[in-house]
Structures are given as C-alpha cells and as structure tokens.
Amino acid sequence: MLSVKGLKAKVGDKDILKGLDLEVGPGEVHAIMGPNGSGKSTFAHVLSGREGYEVTAGSVDFNGQDLLGLEPEERAQLGLFLAFQYPVELPGVNNTYFLKSAVNAIRKARGDDELDAVSFLRLMKERLKVLHLNDSLLKRPVNFGFSGGEKKRNEIFQMAMLEPKLAILDETDSGLDIDALRIVAAGVNALRGPERSMLVVTHYQRLLDYIKPDYVHVLAQGRIIRSGGKELALELEEKGYSWITDGEAA
C-alpha cells in the first residue's frame, strides 16, 4: 500500500528527513511518534504534496504509483487523505458545497459518475450518523469560526465522505480536551477497515489509548529509530523520548 524508502527532505537549507523507511500494509494502523522537531509533520506534509519541502532522495510508492511526482489533488484522487493539525478556515466557502466538490472531483478522477444533489445529501446524512455529528457544521463556511474540536471533527467527517485508502492524521489530538478527543477517536475507529490504512502522527500516547495502532514507530532526527507494537507507545509514555533518543546518540 505505502512504501517509503530512504526519504530525505529539506526545508530551505535545513535537512529534516534524513533517510526514512516505512512500509504500511492494507488495513494497518501505524503510529508515528516522536519529540518536537523530529520531522513528524514534515513527513505528513511531504506525503500530501504540500509546497515548501524539497525531496532530495528516496521514493514513495503508493499502490504502485510514484507519489512524489503527483500534484496534491492527484494524490487525494488516488486515495490519500491528510487530516490537518491546523485545519484551514475558508471564509465564504460553504461546507456542504466544499464537500460535494471534493467528493465529485475524486469520483470523477476514479471514473465514477458524479453524485447528484439528492444522492450526495443522503450520503452526507448517513456519514454524519455514523460519526454522531449534527448537521449544523454543514451550513457554515468551512472551518470558519469553528472551535478547535469542531475543526478536528470536520476533518474526520471529510475523511468519512472521501473514503481514502490511506489517512494521515497529523497531531489530531492537539488542542482537544478529553471529551473531544474521545469523539474524534470514535469517528476514526468507525472508519477503520481492511481496505483503509492509517498513519497516526502524534507526540503523545493519549490518542493511542483510543486509536489502537498495529505498529508504533519512533521518529527522531529525521529517521525511524525504533519500531514495535503498541506496547512501545506505553513504554515511551513511561520513560520519555530520551530513553530512545539518548541511546541513539550514544
């Protein structure tokens, strides 16, 4: 599904990713953990095709496609989804209209018919129900004036509508209180499936109490320095990142 080999990337003159390897199989949930500045968010952004990052070496294969040569919209059309750490406010752009444009752009790229207004509304209502969201978010401009929790829920709702093959959750727990965290995590769990892989990027263990990963990787200084099962996350929580990163430096 996703195969990252020797990925190096820099921002300006600064090397951030220094040879990152990662294999994600279908339906697997991988957590990428690491201290601040380890390159977690850069990795998420490079995968999604955000501008401002220069890939200097390595490859990213996504279901047989060279991801790095594609525009952001082409990656999304192939089934990649990034849940933003800081969802962007789009004043004046209605949330429903935005979702419909996105769903139909992706359907069109896959050779499916575009959904008409009625089918789209039906799909939207169904997904709202699964995520236990109310529809007041839909009438407002995208993320505009949303609370932190509403923004994150809206990200998960978009994910539910777009049905990605690989979802990258970038620090989805940041800025959420425990209740909001539970709601968001429940939404994510509802979307788990054998055909949907997830990459959960997080600094803290607490999100992983609710979203149980199959694998945990520790990212430090631009590389994955340790991989393991979910017990690795608990160990990190207990001992802190220095437990691993100091060992690495020595």
Binding site: S48, G49, R50, E51, E71, P72, E73, R75, A76, Q77, F81, L82, F84, P87, V88, L90, V93, Y97, F98, S101, A102, A105, I106, A109, Q158, L162
Partner: peptide, 16 residues
Amino acid sequence: FYLRSRGISAPLAQRM
C-alpha cells in the same frame, strides 16, 4: 492547498 488536498483541482480551488 487545503482544497487541493481534498482532490479539488487548482483552477476549481481558485474559483471556489
């Protein structure tokens, strides 16, 4: 970028 990351083409994103 936010719009394009949702599969929307650059020209349509601009129009939106």
